[in-house]
Write a protein that binds this DNA or RNA. Sequence first.
DNA 1: CCTATAAATTTGAACCTTAAAATGAATTCC
DNA 2: GGAATTCATTTTAAGGTTCAAATTTATAGG
Lengths: 171, 171
Amino acid sequence: MQELTNVPLDAETKVAERPGDHESELRLWLRLLTCTTLIEGEVRRRLRQEFDVTLPRFDLMAQLDKAPGGMTLGELSQRMMVSNGNVTGLSERLVALGLLDRRQSRSDRRAQLVSLTPEGRRVFRAMARAHEGWIAEIFSQLSPADVDALMRLLARTKASARDAITTEAPR
Amino acid sequence: MQELTNVPLDAETKVAERPGDHESELRLWLRLLTCTTLIEGEVRRRLRQEFDVTLPRFDLMAQLDKAPGGMTLGELSQRMMVSNGNVTGLSERLVALGLLDRRQSRSDRRAQLVSLTPEGRRVFRAMARAHEGWIAEIFSQLSPADVDALMRLLARTKASARDAITTEAPR
DNA sequence: CCTATAAATTTGAACCTTAAAATGAATTCC
DNA sequence: GGAATTCATTTTAAGGTTCAAATTTATAGG
């Protein structure tokens, strides 16, 4: 995190950087980010206040709730769009709380399968019910047509982003 | 983080929790979150790869770039929508790198004013130029009309969220 | 078989983040 | 003008997060 002094000038000129009027896209990105941060913060606050649970733990349990048979850590990290090491730590804490079960995959001894315990499922369902209400409340000023339009536009946005990411950056 | 066992049943029934068909709002929220996470991850990756800088540092510098005279830490934390302690630490590291100046406010000895050093401003401008290009690339499949529609709908979303947050939760 | 490569996780270091308590400075209000 | 309050920031403890390197297990090729 040093030597920021010599700025690379070789940055690929992908989208005509010179004329560079991409202000509207930039503003759109900032607004998108603001909305998400705002809502995420509120959800985090309520999860803590009403259920004494963190957002990442809730997110992890939400993924697992959709997979009755359990999931490998890798699959989890992919769906949650977070790093592997992250999921390792989160799972450990949830197992310690008795909300998650964890066992080695029978078919692949490298893989770890995690799933909700009955207790975990019970707790998650209760949180999810409240969560759905909060979200409805937060979006309550949008008409059904607004919601629909947003869904469509965000689908397009997601596709565009995915393309840009997979096309450009050879990770 | 324990005693999740006894689920509070007293959760305010704000938005008619019983009938409870808020599925479309929930899906919308998940999609919004996906888009943001996707884009944020890509921006973080490129900032690291091309400028060896973290996203939070970039964000902080971006705020400061808009305030030539500098800003107090409190103002920064408010605009960045992060906690106070967060800004304290971030600023310390950026000061150590010579990218930020920091001084006590003359009018209020409690307040700390931070601003970009000339070096910081130079570095930030270069990063911002590249950043703008990445964003344009990421949103490139959206038409100007799409961008416009999204801006409007997200403005409505932001307003709705703010209302829900300030009205309901007396923090 | 045996080696090379790939895949799933874990570990370690550094950093980011929050919430809550503590500190120090300004304001308010008798 | 002194006590109580409010405000800006820092500190602390606990977690969350990433990246990169290391570990362990699978798989493929010869």
